[in-house]
């Protein structure tokens, strides 16, 4: 018998290097290109909103855990930082500071902590925060600063509509598609992100870059983004083919609004998405479908956040019915 006491536990006696902390850091890293892009487009405003959202999310999580729930605060896992960043990405860069804080409180306090904290929330906290703000303060949430021209000014920024809002307005007033197109930014601008909008959603290119990193690190799998993008493309494509005068073309649908941010970062949120590839594809398709329905037939110009939240509610059901194929079950009959 050696003098030291041996440790006994069940196997496995080794574990992978990945941790929750590491996963969160990966998401933050993946968000950086889009963040840099929004700094470039919106300047100081973007910086202000992001910092405020991250700081208040972390602070609220700490305060709630420490003083209301009386548990050990878990802000070290980094999930609050990610929530804060994602919330900021869904806000216009000229949003008043107190609205950002209210949004963070809703995201952390209502959407996350009241369900039991990390891992137990059925809905994406950042999106709940955004939708709450969107419904409560529609004007502030939809007056977007114009890209680039406004980046140096802090107050009274020049605001303008997003491409999607232009389209929605145009269709409402029976403006022909060809005429609308002249008002809209080019596809290249849309892809790079020289357009108005929420601070993180504008640049498809930067978001795809981040998405590639997440795929490489295996934080997300391809199923949800691809299923969602394809559904949006195919569904709006069919509508466009049926009557090109009434509907905008699918490429425009994909490149505008929060489609890429939603597909790569919001819908793939681990906690609120299904567990199996089959389920992920159904989930992605559902989001794509609802998004297009809201955009084309609904009252709002944009529907990604609503679509994701609606599909979030279906996740338990999807998980129940989309089981992985079990070894040995097929052959057994």
């Amino acid at each position: 018998m050696s003098q030291q006491k041996l440790t006994v536990s069940l196997s496995p006696h080794t574990s992978g290097k990945d941790s929750v902390h590491r996963v969160m850091i990966d998401v933050v890293i993946a968000l950086l290109p889009a963040l840099a892009m929004s700094f470039y487009i919106f300047g100081f405003g973007a910086f202000r909103v992001t910092l405020l959202a991250v700081f208040s999310c972390v602070l609220f999580e700490y305060l709630i855990q420490k003083f209301m729930l009386k548990v050990k605060p878990t802000i070290n896992d980094g999930s609050a930082v990610v929530t804060g960043m994602l919330l900021a990405f869904n806000l216009p860069s000229n949003l008043p500071w107190w609205m950002v804080i209210v949004g963070s409180l809703v995201a952390i306090g209502i959407a996350k902590m009241s369900f039991g904290g990390l891992g137990n929330n059925p809905f994406n906290p950042a999106l709940v925060g955004r939708v709450f703000l969107f419904i409560s303060f529609p004007v502030a949430m939809t007056s977007w600063p114009k890209p680039i021209v406004t980046r140096m000014s802090l107050v009274d920024a020049v605001t303008g509509a997003t491409p999607l809002a232009i389209v929605k307005e145009g269709f409402k007033n029976n403006v022909a598609v060809t005429e609308l197109m002249t008002k809209l930014p080019s596809y290249l601008d849309l892809f790079i992100g020289k357009v108005g909008g929420s601070l993180g959603e504008i640049s498809a290119a930067a978001l795809i870059l981040g998405g590639m990193y997440l795929l490489y690190r295996k934080v997300i799998s391809w199923h949800i983004p691809i299923a969602m993008l394809l559904t949006v493309f195919v569904f709006s494509g069919i509508l466009w083919r049926v009557s090109p005068d009434k509907y905008i073309d699918p490429l425009f649908q994909i490149l505008t609004g929060g489609i890429f941010l939603g597909a790569i970062f919001m819908a793939t949120d681990m906690v609120t998405s299904p567990m199996t590839p089959k389920g992920m594809i159904i989930f992605g398709c559902g989001i794509g479908l609802i998004t297009v329905v809201i955009r084309v037939f609904g009252a709002y110009p944009e529907g990604v956040s609503f679509a994701i939240l609606i599909m979030n509610a279906f996740v338990p059901l999807i998980d129940k019915f989309c089981k992985p194929s079990k070894y040995g079950l097929v052959k057994n009959g």
């Binding site: 018998m1 006491k5 041996l6 440790t7 006994v8 536990s9 069940l10």
Partner: peptide, 9 residues
């Protein structure tokens, strides 16, 4: 006396 340490659930 304890002769070893259990580490687990």
């Amino acid at each position: 006396p304890r002769t070893n340490v259990y580490d687990g659930t």
